[in-house]
Amino acid sequence: MNKQLGFLHNSEKCVGCRGCEMACKNLYQTDISQRWRQVFQIDENAYPLPSRMFISIGCNHCSEPQCMKVCPVGAYTKRDDGIVIHDDNRCIGCRLCVMACPYGRPQFNSVINIVQKCNLCYQRVDKGEKPACVASCVAGALELVQINSSLDAKTGVLKTLPGLPSPSITNPSIRFVGPKQGKQVRRD
């Protein structure tokens, strides 16, 4: 593997507008049941800060993709740049990848009876463009980055956030900048 492309999501910047979701749907005209990218709100009880915080999750193009491992028809391939691509034409709709992914990103499309997922806009990436979700993010909260040790070494970059499955299952190629602790004002 030469490199691993992935996402860096900044919860401090994300306003939860779901523009990334809409950009994805607009580009691929996906069925109403499909949400290849989805914005979640972090549960306040899990991360007790008095503000709303969001995370935007698409396929994480994991280092150890369970979807690719379990697929019986080889519909999944991992490119040299780390992007995990699902070939719709090969899929037979067994839904095993849906069971295997803890992020719920391969999704069964009951209209065409196959599984579909985010392919990280590889056609755009190959032309040097940003994926639709990244390009559409008004706050600049979502970035396409190289996942490597120097990124992980940066202060404030996290491998997971509360409410997400343990990264040990698939080693996802997403990193987070978590919400910062705001100024505390004591009123006693």
């Binding site: 690719m68 491992k69 379990v70 697929c71 019986p72 028809v73 080889g74 090969r90 899929c91 037979i92 709709g93 067994c94 839904r95 095993l96 069964f108 065409i112 009876n113 196959i114 599984v115």
Partner: peptide, 22 residues
Amino acid sequence: FHLGRPEYAYRAVSHLSTSWLS
């Protein structure tokens, strides 16, 4: 009957290296 596209069921033996289903 479990498959979305049973007509392509023959493809299910094409990923023996890692897939237990194959």
